[in-house]
Amino acid sequence: MGIGLGIVLLVIGLVFALGAIDLPASIDDVVASETLGWILVAVGVLAIVLALVMNAQRARTTHVVDDRRPPPQV
């Protein structure tokens, strides 16, 4: 999951949580759209935080190269 997926989940969750769209009654009886929205918001924030933490760890990694070539011959 990257930052983009986290932002998409966050936006979809806010749309459901704040009631920006009205779902049909047949779907609204089965799924509580407000609860689903807040769950998607939490998952979106978690995805963004995890992506940022993983990216920060990747940036701090150092690589050591051990070069064992024989000395040049004169």
Score class of each variant (00 low, 15 high):
T62E: 12
I12N: 07
L46N: 01
V43L: 12
R60E: 07
Q57R: 15
M1A: 14
A20T: 10
M1L: 05
P71K: 03
V49N: 01
A59P: 04
G4R: 05
D29P: 00
A56Q: 09
I39P: 00
F16V: 03
A17K: 01
G6Y: 01
G2F: 03
I27A: 08
L23T: 03
T62V: 14
I48C: 05
V15N: 13
R60K: 15
N55R: 10
E34A: 03
W38I: 13
I3T: 08
L9D: 01
D67T: 12
L52Q: 14
V41A: 09
A32W: 07
S26Y: 14
A20K: 12
I12P: 01
I7Y: 03
L5M: 02
V74Y: 09
P24L: 05
R60W: 03
V43E: 02
V74K: 08
I3K: 07
M1N: 12
T62P: 00
L9M: 13
V74R: 04
E34M: 00
Q73F: 12
N55C: 00
D22E: 14
G13T: 04
A47K: 02
L52F: 11
I12L: 13
T61R: 14
V8G: 04
W38C: 03
L40M: 15
E34Q: 11
L5H: 04
L23Y: 09
I7S: 04
